[in-house]
């Protein structure tokens, strides 16, 4: 497993699997992360306050100017060299409702035109793929998911929107995402998901986690409104969108 260590000041370093990316890279990073987490649990590794995982790197954040920086770096390097175990890491699967209609899908027509497909074909392709969550980042609870069908791969919009509504389901390059918050953004908006992805009252505030699988189920506008209402009133819990309704 080729990797290198990148220094980010005196309180963070990044382990980068230079030749990996996408779902393969994310899996390797998750494997390293759980090994580091395990050694933090046993007290073997000390001084770590946070870890940020991406599709090919793990950033380890330490207490400021932690005197044991070099020790931790060595410990993490010792764990980084082994390959991810195929059997482990089987994450949960979500089936999230998406309304691909009207004002909730502002870029659907344009994406269809650029792809030379009908809007319905775009919906079928986007909702007919199971996506793997590479990482959570950019905004609280924001999932980066791969991989988009090659027919729907377009670079980000040339001029980003200043306001992307919360819940927007979007695509860019080989990834798809859901915006948990209103924010500026340059991705193409294909639909809207009514399920809140972040709840600060939960111990684990992000609904989705890296390594989990997400499928999208097209719903009508009427169903979207009903689900949104039921979630708001507590008649429906976000966990009911786990496969098998766990």
């Amino acid at each position: 497993m080729d990797f290198r260590v990148l220094m980010m000041g005196d309180a963070a370093f990044t382990i980068e699997y230079t030749d990996l990316k996408g779902t393969v890279g994310a899996k390797q990073v998750r494997a390293l992360r759980s090994k580091v987490q395990a050694e933090i649990g046993t007290g073997e590794i000390a001084g770590v306050v946070d870890m940020i995982s991406t599709s090919r790197s793990l950033t380890v954040c330490l207490t400021p100017a932690y005197a044991g920086f070099e020790t931790v770096r060595q410990q993490v390097c010792d764990l980084a060299g082994t390959a991810a175990d195929d059997a482990s890491q089987q994450g949960r699967t979500w089936t999230l409702p998406v309304c691909y209609e009207g004002e909730l899908a502002p870029d659907l027509t344009e994406v269809a035109e650029r792809a030379g497909l009908t809007a319905q074909e775009v919906i079928n392709i986007h909702s007919g793929t199971a996506y793997s969550i590479l990482m959570i980042g950019f905004l609280p609870g924001f999932p980066f998911m791969a991989e988009i069908d090659p027919r729907l791969r377009f670079p980000r919009r040339e001029s980003p929107r200043t306001r992307v509504p919360a819940g927007s389901v979007a695509i860019a390059n080989d990834q798809t995402a859901i915006y948990p918050w209103e924010s500026p953004g340059g991705w193409h908006l294909l639909g809207r998901c009514p399920v809140a992805l972040f709840d600060a009252d939960q111990a684990v505030p992000s609904l989705l986690q890296a390594g989990e699988t997400v499928c999208f189920e097209p719903v009508s506008r009427a169903d979207f409104d009903r689900i949104e209402q039921d979630l708001k009133q507590g008649n429906l819990l976000p966990d009911s969108f786990l496969k098998g309704g766990e």
Partner: peptide, 10 residues
């Protein structure tokens, strides 16, 4: 680059 982690001060 392929996105990686950020901290304050980078």
């Amino acid at each position: 680059l392929i996105s990686d982690g950020l901290v304050c001060g980078a």
